[in-house]
């Protein structure tokens, strides 16, 4: 089942790459062939938002007593880590696209700035998760941190509409809800979003299973340490 998932993801990424690199036309107003970066930049940004949304949702489910389960905590962590990878990629790809079209690697524009903040907020979240405390304590603290950090996601998303900035408005979901591109470009963008969403799902699944393994090993180590301690105390107690 997982194999099939992976195969589908790889095939759809491959098809997207072919369309993005060879089928779609270059655009003079978007840096000629540099416009091909759109098919990576926009989907990675969308996945970053999705990933942090999943983290926030899982955190809420953990905080709500009726649905509290270790699964949500681990899912939140897995999704945030994948999200950080995608946010980092979004920034790098945007920078690579900005250089030929805007003439600069970085601009202190609202969208770029809020995305960079997002990256650091979730790096902090991941650091908070690794501080080695009990699973419950980690779940509670990281869930609250995730909800606070998520406040930046809508700000970042809407920043291009709120402030008139250098960054262009949404290609698909803009104010007039009119798709600004057509034909093969629109198809490629949709294909890219679909295949990156599949990739996101697959990575989160793998990362979640890894997190379960890590958690299991920690629990075993704790058990063994307690067992050793008990044995040692028996030895000490025996002569008395």
């Amino acid at each position: 089942m997982k194999r099939l998932f992976l195969a589908t993801t790889v095939v759809s990424l491959g098809v997207t790459a072919v369309f993005a690199l060879w089928v779609t036309p270059p655009r003079a107003d978007q840096g000629f062939d540099a416009v091909r970066l759109l098919y990576l930049h926009a989907p990675t940004a969308w996945i970053a938002y999705l990933a942090f949304g999943v983290t926030a949702l899982a955190s809420l489910l953990w905080l709500f007593p009726r649905t509290r389960s270790a699964t949500w905590d681990l899912l939140a962590g897995a999704s945030a880590e994948v999200g950080v990878v995608f946010t980092g990629l979004t920034l790098v790809l945007g920078s690579l696209w900005g250089r030929p079209t805007w003439g600069t690697w970085w601009e202190w524009d609202a969208r770029l700035t809020t995305t960079a903040i997002l990256f650091f907020l979730y790096l902090g979240y991941l650091a908070l998760r690794r501080t080695g405390t009990t699973a419950d304590e980690r779940g509670k603290r990281s869930a609250i941190a995730a909800l606070i950090a998520f406040a930046d996601v809508p700000v970042s998303y809407l920043s291009v509409t709120w402030w008139q900035t250098l960054h262009q408005q949404g290609t698909v979901f803009n104010e007039r809800l009119s798709v600004k591109i057509d034909g093969s470009m629109a198809f490629t963008l949709v294909a890219a979003v679909v295949s990156f969403t599949l990739l996101y799902g697959y990575l989160v699944l793998e990362r979640f299973e890894l997190a379960q393994l890590e958690e299991g090993r920690e629990a075993r180590e704790l058990e063994r340490a307690i067992a050793e301690r008990v044995r040692a105390e028996h030895v000490e107690v025996a002569p008395v």
């Binding site: 903040i117 650091f120 907020l121 790096l123 902090g124 650091a127 908070l128 501080t131 080695g132 405390t133 603290r141 941190a145 606070i148 950090a149």
Partner: peptide, 15 residues
Amino acid sequence: LRARETLLPLLVLPA
């Protein structure tokens, strides 16, 4: 938490 001194700036400054 352990390492709270180094964690705090990373959490507070972006926020």
